[in-house]
Design a protein around this nucleic acid. Structure first.
Lengths: 130, 130
DNA sequence: CAATACATTAGAATCATTCTAAACTGATAT
DNA sequence: ATATCAGTTTAGAATGATTCTAATGTATTG
């Protein structure tokens, strides 16, 4: 991501100091899974001094613009994924860690959806033991 | 479920008045997806007068004994499933409703799990549009 | 560079869930 | 039966992630 300001403007987001810092961290080319908390910790490390409220606002803004995916893994916190392509995950509860599955997986034997309902997307979560 | 008291005892749970009422509702032969809130509403309807704390405790106790499955669908609340067999779900966000998929589905193209990790179980969630 | 629409922030509010500690009850032994 | 006691229930407080509020700050536009 060379020009973050341009990137933010393209997505109808004012490139404020805080958004630039957060976008630079999130969209550095390495896919990430973050929660408000883990992101806050990273930003603290780089002494960015961004308030929690702004972190929540920004994650939400990025999500609204389709720059992040929301993952429902456990009910304790919300995970955001910088990989917005359709993909699946390994999940280690023990490590509280998600790992992308980029392979092209197929699900067979799926029954018809209920009347008047259409399938939107299929999500596979592979739980790891240890 | 004919003898709920016996059933509870078999699972090392004292058959208290509250647990009997809740177990009777949950294990009546029809699989259910409940949250503390929806269960509380049902119990209110039948004027059971069971406190929220007990509802949480009981769901937890039943879960600990393997009588319920926990589902992580969204981060707003915890869902419990009376169907403890391995199975998958349709989910309609709009209706906030889960539907069991009992068909025997297969997932192909799964990559190897990360080093030193074993696959525990595979969960497929089919999101519905409308 | 002034005006203004949008952003940031600290701290309060919210809401599902968990905790606390006092009152209660099912099981067991007498 | 009844006393005992470990296990339960409960109201209400506490917690913790997230959202809201409303005051202050800042990017954009003309």
């Amino acid at each position: 991501m060379k020009d973050i300001k341009h990137f933010l403007r393209q997505n109808s987001l004012r490139p404020t100091k805080q958004r630039v810092i957060i976008a630079n961290y999130l969209f550095d080319g390495v896919n990430k899974h973050v929660t408000a908390e883990t992101l806050s910790n990273e930003l603290l490390k780089m002494k960015a001094g961004i308030s929690l409220a702004t972190i929540y606002n920004t994650l939400h803004d990025f999500y609204e613009k389709g720059l992040l995916k929301k993952l429902m893994i456990n009910s304790e916190r919300i995970y955001f994924d910088t990989n917005t392509e359709h993909h699946h995950h390994f999940y280690s509860k023990k490590d509280q860690k998600l790992i992308d599955i980029n392979a092209d997986m197929k699900v067979s034997g799926l029954p018809k959806p209920p009347k008047n309902k259409k399938i939107n997307k299929i999500e596979v979560l592979v739980h790891l033991d240890n």
